[in-house]
Write a protein that binds this DNA or RNA. Structure first.
Lengths: 265, 265
DNA sequence: ATATAAAGTATTGCAATACACTACTAATAT
DNA sequence: ATATTAGTAGTGTATTGCAATACTTTATAT
């Protein structure tokens, strides 16, 4: 009654009369299903989403009825249904970048016979739109939507290289930089040095910064306005490709592929 | 005021106090984005979803703020964002069927060098969880979540073959059976005959029923309880594989792959 | 075996949220 | 220039979603 009727928590989503918070909560539930566990019980969903019991109950129920969640009736635990693939397929089939890239990516894979990916920025991660496995092996990571950290990967560094340096630096500093392998570079300045090289040489190499035995290389894809919107990356094995091989043999092919995918401005 | 306060429209979702209809509407908007058009304006969304203007406005706005829809500010049209790949990736990475199948599917592709797919039932369609392209060409249809009709495809017929005949018949009759190619079988009895053969011979062949020049073969994958939960399908070219080739060379390999993926009861 | 705790399900009155309606503005098409 | 269509903003109201609570079932410990 002291006149302070105004809420203090007007950070973002409040005071937005068009925002429907039920939708937000429903997606919080969907997003609770990550890659670590397959099925979740109600309490686990409550823990992961921050919703209360009633809300968790109502949104799991609703998503179940809509067919986006499966429910195992004996364990009463929920899991994602294959229905979530619907919108993913819609996206992939109509996205111009993906469609333009596919034949070039396939051809590059044929030439090098290594894993090839097309990735873009997604928050503080790189998301692969097309992760093409090599012909021999099949990786569990070879599905669209696969994400890897931004700061220690070729695709991430390439995409940062074509943004304003201070912007790139800010993004890197927001990353939780962990030493994934002994050779992972985590120092901001060191990463910035790598990034600065990219703009000069037109590609980026990382040497087992994310997986022992891998040496990777990526080059930028540009849109019509000259923005780097994606990168083509090749994941090679160190005992098949030396650093010199990467520079002299792999780099020209990857750069040429990325250029071919780029929209000619 | 005549006492008829009760609603008449209690078909399904009403009288369900736990069902949150805002979530339903939000997903209606997401589902409006199919594979025919990339971007949609507000009115198109209204037409496809049946929502009114306010609702369409609020849910596009909400989905945009959540990052699931992109908005082109010049055309003010919406499109799916690559964020929809997140849950697809989560599903594919943790699904036991997919994980068990991948190495076998890859090996089968290596042996035959044709397109191989792992599909399951999804309403009146077959949905491919893993559509593996052949090594030479790349199809736009080679993304997870790709759907094909049930009634005229090997996977569909295989999956129906291991259900009760009357159930299978009912499903077929619910399909809108169009003659996709001149040789597409659309008659219910004729399809039932094909389906009955499947249970005897353990596989299904279709001869250019969905694409001229293709001859396809599929075999069932069973879960621990003996239910056919998926099928392995091989899409071959007619000028590379005769019907006899399919029966003698392809069928044993596909059946063996499907059996290897099946959970041993 | 029995008790105890934990997880999941069902119900209800209340009020805040999402609703439809309307009015307004901007962009095409004629 | 004018008409028409598409998209945006605002508002009072009641319907919808909310939290609290009670109840049932399953799991765990004693």
């Amino acid at each position: 009654m002291d006149g302070s009727m105004e809420m203090v928590k007007n950070t973002e989503k409040d005071d937005d009369r068009l925002f429907v918070s039920s939708v937000d909560k429903a997606f919080k539930v969907l997003e609770a299903f990550g890659t670590d566990r397959r099925d979740l019980g109600l309490v686990e969903i409550i823990e992961r989403t921050g919703l209360n019991k009633s809300a968790a109950q109502r949104f799991t129920h609703t998503l179940h009825r809509l067919g986006y969640l499966e429910k195992d009736m004996s364990s009463r635990r929920y899991m994602l249904s294959h229905r979530v693939l619907e919108s993913a397929n819609s996206f992939l089939r109509v996205d111009p970048l993906v469609n333009k890239a596919i034949p070039h990516i396939v051809e590059l894979r044929r030439q090098l016979n290594v894993r090839i990916g097309l990735g873009c920025l997604h928050g503080l991660n790189v998301m692969y739109l097309i992760p093409l496995q090599s012909n021999q092996a099949a990786f569990r990571t070879a599905h669209p939507g696969f994400q890897i950290p931004l700061y220690c990967t070729t695709t991430g560094r390439v995409l940062l290289a074509y943004r304003k340096p201070e912007e790139a630096r800010a993004i890197i500093e927001r990353c939780e930089r962990t030493k994934i392998t002994p050779t992972t570079i985590t120092d901001t300045d060191a990463i910035m040095t790598e990034i600065n090289n990219v703009r000069n040489q037109g590609y980026c190499i990382t040497d087992q910064e994310i997986r022992i035995g891998d040496i990777n290389l990526a080059a930028p894809v540009f849109d019509g306005r000259g923005n780097a919107i994606a990168a083509v990356a090749a994941a090679c094995l160190r005992n098949e490709f030396s650093r010199k091989d990467m520079e002299t043999k792999v780099a020209p092919l990857v750069i040429e592929t990325a250029r071919a995918i780029s929209t000619d401005g």
